[in-house]
């Protein structure tokens, strides 16, 4: 029977890879998949169907380092009247009545330990569209991160557009 020892060895080998693949699946669904949000807000409805400009809600994008997330008040300026029968809008109205901020889950984040200074204003003023970094958000129901925001990706775009690639341009 010695000559059949290879089969259990093969089972171990392929089993090990099955375990690795399963771990990768678990890692993706728990750490790398797009975050779920407190309400089922759809960028597609607001930016494509209704046709709102990005800066209608993210009004700091061309004025500040951060683009900003609109306060519940901004949502309610329309949704006091629009779609009030929808359960998701009722959740929103709940936050408004309780005077609670919406706890959105962050989609894009530059890791702080790399001491990166990034300014939205500078990029918007230069004419970089929101989509060039954030992807086609106006067609997303649930927002996911399209660009890695890793250094190689930033540098690639800086080189293509003739922007400075000096370390101190971004790292301070």
């Amino acid at each position: 029977m010695k000559k059949f020892l290879g089969i259990p060895a093969g089972l171990g080998y392929f089993g090990m890879f099955a375990a690795i693949y399963l771990t990768m699946q678990w890692d993706w669904s728990s750490h790398k998949s797009p975050p779920h949000q407190p309400i089922a807000f759809s960028h597609k409805i607001h930016a494509t169907t209704v046709g709102l400009e990005c800066t209608f809600c993210h009004d700091l994008a061309d004025k500040s380092t951060f683009a900003g997330i609109p306060p519940v008040e901004k949502c309610m300026s329309c949704h006091k009247n629009v779609k009030t029968e929808s359960p998701e809008i009722q959740k929103l109205a709940g936050y408004w009545e309780r005077e609670e901020p919406m706890e959105w889950n962050r989609v894009h984040r530059i890791r702080i330990r790399e001491h990166v200074f990034f300014s939205h204003k500078r990029h918007v003023k230069k004419g970089i569209t929101c989509q060039q970094c954030h992807g086609l958000v106006q067609y997303m129901d649930e927002v996911r991160r399209v660009s890695s925001l890793e250094m190689g990706w930033c540098v690639g775009c800086h080189q293509e557009n003739g922007a400075s690639t000096d370390c101190l341009t971004c790292h301070q």
Partner: peptide, 16 residues
């Protein structure tokens, strides 16, 4: 990462 999904890994495990 954005090309992946849970189902994609399941297909890989089936191939295995």
């Amino acid at each position: 990462i954005l090309a992946m999904s849970t189902e994609v890994y399941s297909v890989a495990i089936a191939a295995l």
